[in-house]
Structures are given as structure tokens and as C-alpha cells.
């Protein structure tokens, strides 16, 4: 049993400076509202973990919240680069960012190992690529039964996992459907779990490809309608491709970026006000 709380309370209580934090959601259900709250509360020295950093980490990295990024694909999907991410990696602005780069298969297996309370995962991959040369957390391992050489990657056990879902019920069970990516593994691998949801309902209806994360696996549920915008919530709203495109010139320029974050994230109370603020400006689709 978990508690239904405000997002502000959940982030204040469950995210500490220096924590390893994973905000997951594969294109779908990206927890933007939670990321903004972390930025607003000026959490710092975070190790951010995420398969596809996306705009959500571009914003957090650009605000200096992260000291390290553990990831497997960095970009603005279908648009181009994450400019704040690149500025941090290539020029150390606003602070240097340490990278730990894996492949998707490696990250998926690291979360699975973490969720299974194993120290590492084994997979067929990485061999012959340059990734092991730049990433120390990739090591060869021999199968104890056949001697076959495979690759080991350490488990991921974030201090906090944050995901966004379509619904929670009154008991705090969480329902996601559509593309559910790595969210279950991320949640079960973490010490503390925060879930933002589109709405809290009395009872779940059946959905194709749906999964339920039981209440006991979740520490805090926060109702944040449209909390995944500009990504999408299957059954609720579509991805704002226009926002992703419009982000490019904002993210490209340090001053423009700071101004945008000050107006629309630091200068607002919550995500509802953020949405009103960007719509008032009318520039982001």
C-alpha cells in the first residue's frame, strides 16, 4: 500500500541530492512533470539513468542537476541532437557530465538483473565493438558450464525510479498500456518508486498489452494529468511532435534555454501551470 501524495511532496521526500535516479518511458509515458519538479527543487549531483535521454534529460542536464549519465541512445528522436547534453559532454556547460554508455540490450539486462537482486547480467553483445574501451562496466565472462565467452554488465539499482502511467486505482495499483518499455524493470530494480498517473480510478478496465504494477512495488502515486507531455499517453493524448521540433532552437542556445526554463519550469507552481505557461506563449505546439 502506498500513498497518494502531491508530486512536490513525493520528490521532496524520496529524491535526495547525489541520488541515482532513473526516469523511464520509451518514447511513451516519459515523466516530464516529475523531471520538472526535480529541477524546481534544485536537486543536484544526480546520476541520471535512462535508456533514451530525450528532451527530459536535456532539460535536467542543461539545468546542472546531473553529474553523470548512464544511457544507451542520446538524441531528439526524428529531429537531431540534444544540444544541452552535447554542450555538457563537449564543453562542460553548465558542468561536466560523466558518461557511462551502453547498448539498449545492455541497459535492459542491467535493469532486469537489478530487479532480480543479481549482481550482474549476462548477454551476447558488445564483443568487437569499441564500447568496452570507453565504458568500464562491460566485462567478458566465461560460462561456467561450457566455457563460452559472454559479456557481463553490472545490475542497475537506482535509488529512485520515476515512471508515468495512465491510471492508478484507489489502492495504489498502477496500470500502463501500449508500449510499456522498461518501466516495470526500472521500478522493480529501484529502492524507491514514484509513479505519476493521468488519473486515479475506482477500478481498472481491461486493456490490450496492459501491465499492472502492484501497489506494494510503489512508494508514491501522484495524479498529474498530461504529466508525460510532450511525450504521449496511449488512450489520453498524442505525442507533440511539434514540441520536439520546436525544442531544437531552444536547446541550441544557452540563454534561450535558461530563459525558457526560468519562465516555464522554475517560475511556475506545478505542471498544470507549466502547460498553461507554454500554451500562453504559443511557441511549443
Amino acid at each position: 500500500m502506498n500513498e497518494t501524495v502531491t508530486l512536490r511532496e513525493a520528490i521532496a521526500a524520496l529524491v535526495n541530492d547525489g541520488d541515482t535516479v532513473a526516469l523511464e518511458g520509451f518514447t511513451h509515458l516519459i515523466p516530464f512533470a516529475a523531471a520538472h519538479e526535480i529541477v524546481r527543487q534544485e536537486k543536484k549531483d544526480l546520476t541520471l539513468v535512462r535508456m533514451t535521454p530525450d528532451l527530459v534529460y536535456d532539460q535536467m542536464i542543461g539545468m546542472g542537476a546531473a553529474k553523470k549519465l548512464v544511457f544507451s541512445w542520446g538524441g531528439n528522436p526524428g529531429v537531431g541532437s540534444l544540444h544541452r547534453f552535447r554542450d555538457a559532454v563537449e564543453r562542460g556547460w553548465p558542468r561536466a557530465l560523466e558518461l557511462e554508455e551502453h547498448s539498449h540490450a545492455g541497459m535492459a539486462n542491467r535493469y532486469s538483473a537489478g530487479a532480480s537482486n543479481l549482481p550482474f547480467a549476462v548477454l551476447r553483445g558488445y564483443v568487437g565493438t569499441d564500447l568496452p574501451k570507453v565504458t568500464p562496466t562491460i566485462e567478458p565472462i566465461a560460462c561456467p558450464f561450457t566455457g563460452e565467452e559472454l559479456t557481463a554488465v553490472p545490475a542497475l539499482n537506482p535509488d529512485v525510479a520515476v515512471i508515468h502511467a495512465q491510471q492508478a486505482d484507489r489502492k495504489g495499483n498502477v496500470l500502463l498500456w501500449g508500449i510499456t518499455g522498461i518501466q516495470k524493470e526500472a521500478a522493480l530494480s529501484a529502492k524507491r518508486v514514484i509513479v505519476t498517473v493521468e488519473e486515479v480510478v475506482d477500478a481498472f478496465e481491461e486493456h490490450t498489452f496492459g501491465i499492472v504494477l502492484p501497489s506494494v512495488a510503489v512508494d508514491a502515486v501522484c495524479a498529474v494529468p498530461q504529466g508525460a507531455y510532450p511525450s504521449y499517453a496511449h488512450g489520453y493524448y498524442a505525442r507533440s511532435n511539434a514540441f520536439y521540433e520546436a525544442w531544437d532552437p531552444v536547446g541550441r542556445d544557452r540563454e534561450k534555454f535558461r530563459g525558457w526554463m526560468e519562465r516555464h519550469v522554475l517560475g511556475v507552481e506545478d505542471f498544470a501551470e507549466h502547460l498553461r505557461s507554454i500554451r500562453r506563449e504559443g511557441a511549443m505546439g
Binding site: T52, F71, S72, W73, G74, G75, S81, F85, V89, L99, E101, H102, S103, H104, A105, L123, R124, G125, Y126, T129, L131
Partner: peptide, 9 residues
Amino acid sequence: ACRGGGCPE
């Protein structure tokens, strides 16, 4: 560029 993603495997 950091676009390894799923490609290696």
C-alpha cells in the same frame, strides 16, 4: 552522437 541504441546487438 551517442546513437548506439539497439544497433550493436
